[in-house]
Every structure is written in structure tokens, then in C-alpha cells.
Computed example of a mutant assay.
Amino acid sequence: MKMLRVPLLVMGLLMCAQGFAATAQQNKMTTCNADATAKSLKGDDRKAFMSTCLKAAPASTATPQQEKMKTCNATATTQALKGDARKTFMSDCLKKK
């Protein structure tokens, strides 16, 4: 019976740790709240600031490959490429360094 307690305890701790990890939204809320406090905002001004801050787009965490994909895709769209021409262009564009 004692042998069963240790694995169950470890599993329980792992599940709890996942529950306590802050989400991106929670991190954003913490940052916006700290900014509002630093600016000494109160009442309606604080509400307006928090609303704007929380709606703001997060900083880009895209990888260089994702950025390249966005650039190539935008260029293909600008050139109005369709079908095989678009596939060929995207392939060549993504292979470039």
C-alpha cells in the first residue's frame, strides 16, 4: 500500500502545478494592472485604461519561419497569384534565406 502512495502523490503534485501556471491572459492582466497602478489611475480612467490595455495585440512571438511565411504570403496576394503559380512562388520564396 505504501508503494502506491508515492506515485499517487507525485501525480497529484504534477496536476496541481499545471493548474497554477499563469496563462498569457493572466500575465497580460497582471502587467496592465501594474501599469494602471503605476499611473495612479482610479475609477473610470482605470477601467478605460485596463480595457484598452487588455485588448492590445500581444507582442509578436512568431518564429523567423512564420514571419517569412507571412511576408511571402502577403507578396503572393499583392501579385494576385493563384493556383500553381502561387504554389511555385511560395515554395521559392520560403526557400530563400
Rank of each mutant, 00 (worst) to 15 (best):
Q65G: 01
F89K: 02
F49C: 04
P7L: 03
V6F: 13
S60C: 01
M69V: 13
K68I: 01
L54E: 12
A85N: 08
T78Y: 05
A38D: 15
P7F: 05
N73E: 14
K82V: 11
L13S: 07
S91G: 07
M11P: 02
P7D: 00
A56I: 02
C93Y: 01
P58R: 10
K2D: 15
A62C: 07
A36W: 04
N33S: 15
L9A: 07
G83W: 00
A17Y: 04
M1P: 11
M3I: 15
C72D: 04
M90Q: 06
A76S: 07
C53S: 03
T37N: 14
K70F: 08
C72M: 01
L41Y: 02
A74Q: 10
Q18Y: 06
A36H: 03
L94M: 13
K55M: 09
L54V: 04
S51P: 01
K28S: 08
A56K: 15
C16W: 11
A36M: 03
R86K: 11
A24S: 14
C72Y: 03
L9H: 00
F89S: 06
L41P: 05
T61F: 03
K97F: 10
K47V: 12
V10S: 00
C16H: 07
Q25S: 09
M69I: 12
N27A: 04
K42I: 07
C53P: 07
L81M: 13
T63K: 07
T31C: 01
K55W: 02
M90W: 03
A17N: 07
K97R: 11
D35F: 05
A74S: 10
T37G: 02
M3E: 12
G19S: 13
T31W: 11
A34R: 15
G19M: 04
A62H: 06
A38S: 09
T30P: 00
Q26N: 02
A80G: 08
T23F: 04
A48D: 11
T31F: 14
R5G: 01
D35P: 01
